[in-house]
Simulated scan of single mutants.
Amino acid sequence: MRLIGFAGWSGSGKTTLVTQVIPALIARGRTVSTIKHAHHDFDVDQPGKDSYEHRAAGAAEVLVASSRRFALMHEYRGEAELDLHSLLARLAPVDVVIVEGFKRDAFPKLEVHRPEVGKPLLQPDDRHIVAVASPKPLPGLTVPWLPLDDLDAIVGFLIANDLA
């Protein structure tokens, strides 16, 4: 499995770009999965649902399944949070895994940068950033610049560099 991260500050457009890249890669014959790191208190379950009640009662894992999908919820209950590679091992094999988050981990990343967000580039300090996508070219980049509004250029770069 190839692994490519999308890194950037909140409000830079990471999720928007990821949701455009996924179908573009699928159209080019790739199978794609994603891993998204979330805030500590996120929950996919809701009070009153049976699965929530199972977890509240102490179940370590609850798997909810239907004819369309399944979701596995694992409660850490004092265990350490799984690292990225442990989470990758839980995925079914695909061609590409897109990661949003885990920006401190060492794997190839595409930085999404919008100057109007008012935050500095991550690229000078993260040697794992392979390119920067932004609305306009940025001075001083030591990696390729990709136009944020050119999906074909971004996906083409990922494929050409064996990242997708």
Rank of each mutant, 00 (worst) to 15 (best):
H37T: 11
K49V: 05
P135E: 05
D41W: 11
R2T: 06
K119I: 10
L72V: 07
K109T: 00
T34L: 09
P135Q: 07
A164M: 03
V112F: 00
L151M: 10
P120G: 10
A24Q: 01
R90A: 11
V112N: 00
I129W: 02
W9S: 11
K136W: 13
R77I: 09
L121N: 04
A59M: 09
S67G: 14
H85W: 11
H40L: 07
V32H: 01
I159F: 07
D162K: 13
I26H: 11
V94R: 05
D150F: 09
V94F: 02
A27F: 05
D83M: 14
P115I: 08
K103S: 02
A38G: 14
P124H: 03
L84R: 00
L148H: 01
S33N: 12
H37C: 08
V99S: 00
H85I: 06
S10I: 03
L25F: 07
R28F: 04
R28D: 04
R69E: 15
D45V: 01
Q46R: 15
P139R: 13
S66T: 15
P23T: 07
V130L: 12
S12E: 01
T142P: 09
A65F: 06
V21M: 06
R90V: 03
L82Y: 15
R2Q: 12
G78I: 14
A153E: 06
L163F: 04
E75C: 02
W9Q: 04
H85Q: 05
V99Q: 00
L82F: 14
R69S: 14
P147V: 12
F157S: 05
D43Q: 13
Y52L: 05
F157M: 03
H128I: 03
K14W: 02
G78E: 10
L3I: 02
F157D: 08
G29V: 07
H113I: 12
R90P: 02
Y52F: 15
Y52K: 01
R2L: 05
A57E: 04
F102I: 02
P120F: 10
T31C: 04
A92W: 10
A71Q: 03
A56P: 06
P93V: 13
V18T: 15
R127I: 07
T19I: 11
D152M: 05
S134D: 10
F42L: 05
I98F: 00
I26P: 09
L25K: 01
S10L: 08
H85E: 02
L163E: 03
G29T: 08
R69Q: 15
S33I: 07
P139F: 07
D149W: 11
D150A: 12
E75N: 06
I129F: 06
M73H: 10
V64C: 12
P137S: 12
H37F: 09
E81A: 14
G11T: 06
T34D: 12
P93E: 15
W9E: 03
G29D: 08
D150H: 12
L138F: 13
T142Y: 08
E79Q: 13
L87V: 11
I129G: 05
H128K: 06
M1K: 05
R55W: 10
A160F: 08
S51Q: 07
K119E: 15
R77W: 10
Y52Q: 02
L121T: 04
